[in-house]
Design a protein around this nucleic acid. Structure first.
Lengths: 153, 153
DNA sequence: GACCTCAGGTTTCGTTACGAAACGCCTATA
DNA sequence: TATAGGCGTTTCGTAACGAAACCTGAGGTC
């Protein structure tokens, strides 16, 4: 009767959820993007219980989304940093943020704006593109079996 | 001691997780994209317990991600369909799928490919663009308070 | 009317996960 | 030796999950 895991589903969505879909996990990753590196920082910023934070950090390190390094500081100190795999999650976070800006807050009440440093241009959308870098039409997409397809999508 | 909800966090990621971050919820949405509309279809395709499916469908309807309509069929039959808000989640699902293709399966072992119907061009990436439709540089982004900002990001 | 079927749930109950607080461990400084 | 800070682990009560049994309302059959 253990909680079902999704890692046996041959589907990218299920795999992503299996690695970062746990309650709290994506918020920890978001906090890492905001600059948190220490246990106490995550704890304070999120208001998460220590045991749960400990568990989630361990799983994130196991999945190589975060790295854990001992610091050259007095005491038993560590820092957690996003790996390249972890940094690649910014698109997932951005997609969620844009969706909420549109459907939960309303676009003119967004609590957070992401903009290019030098030009100040705000990031307002994600565009689906093909290998050639040109946009594909989202309304005309179809799902096909890929090279690693078995049964379930 | 109730499970913490994120709906009071003034952050788009937290809001999205509050509405669709529950265990199973995004997989139900994914199945809806694949064409499931009936209770039994979701149940069979996902292998989810009836009570949990029932709970998740109700929440998705509450949040207007799915609509529930009675069918003109004999018996007590309903269908669940994605609303516009729900269909807008395809970017989140796509971001997760691309992330897994890269980091879990490996790009050449992706179980699923999404391509444009007429041209056959595969969707291979999401591109961040500004209001002018031109790409922004992801490595030079900064987070700013938006119009609805309060304290927490 | 009495009975049956089927989709779509709800109830029940045992197991697992979560949350809060207390406690332990390691390192360093006084 | 004592104390303190950072980083967890342990403990324990509550909530969520999973499986199976049960219920409900609409229709069809006799």
């Amino acid at each position: 009767m253990s909680r079902k895991r999704f890692d046996d589903m041959n589907c990218g969505v299920a795999q992503a959820l299996d690695q970062v879909g746990d309650w709290w996990t994506l918020l920890i990753v978001r906090d890492a993007f905001f600059g948190s590196t220490r246990f106490a920082q995550f704890e304070e910023s999120l208001g998460i219980a220590k045991n749960i934070l400990s568990d989630r950090l361990r799983k994130l390190v196991d999945h190589q989304v975060l790295s854990k390094e001992r610091l050259d500081e007095p005491g038993n100190r560590f820092e957690y940093r996003l790996t390249e795999k972890g940094r690649d999650l910014w698109i997932v976070l951005t997609a969620m943020r844009l969706w909420s800006d549109k459907w939960v807050f309303g676009r003119d009440k967004a609590p957070l704006v992401v903009a290019e440093q030098d030009t100040g241009r705000a990031l307002t959308a994600l565009l689906a593109v093909g290998e050639d870098g040109k946009p594909v039409d989202p309304s005309k997409l179809e799902w096909r079996a890929g090279p690693g397809a078995t049964s379930k999508s």
